[in-house]
């Protein structure tokens, strides 16, 4: 977790039911496992394997990236703001959690 993810959220105080848009980008090499190093050895695969976004206790989105996702993965999604809570985003790779970001969303 060298650098924290960059987060943009369209509205942190949305009206009930309003569609909120979130953009997030984090730092990850996304090594495909197909490249060879200078000595001809395969560079082991190292990719992001999971992302979850939840608002309070309710899960909003699970994302399963594969090899085709670009370096420093970018994700943009929307959700309907039905209740206040902490919007929590968690990125994982095979070593475990690599990044986490929180934003408080207050519906009013």
């Amino acid at each position: 977790m060298a650098r924290p993810p960059r987060i943009w959220i369209s509205n942190e105080t949305p009206a009930p039911g309003e569609i909120v848009r979130v953009r997030a980008q984090m730092v990850h090499v996304m090594e495909s496992g197909l490249r060879l190093d200078a000595s001809g050895q395969t560079v082991p695969q190292d990719i992001l394997t999971g992302f979850t976004a939840s608002l309070g206790d309710s899960l909003l989105l699970e994302w399963t990236p594969e090899m085709a996702i670009s370096q420093n993965p970018y994700i943009e999604f929307t959700f309907a703001a039905r209740h206040s809570g902490r919007l929590r985003m968690v990125w994982t790779d095979r070593r475990g959690v690599v990044a986490q970001a929180d934003r408080d969303v207050t519906v009013g």
Partner: peptide, 19 residues
């Protein structure tokens, strides 16, 4: 990639970057 949504999402709109 694969996305899973729940009834709580209330939306289905995602953007990613592919190689």
């Amino acid at each position: 990639c694969r996305f899973r949504f729940t009834a709580a999402t209330g939306s289905a709109d995602v953007t990613v970057r592919l190689r």
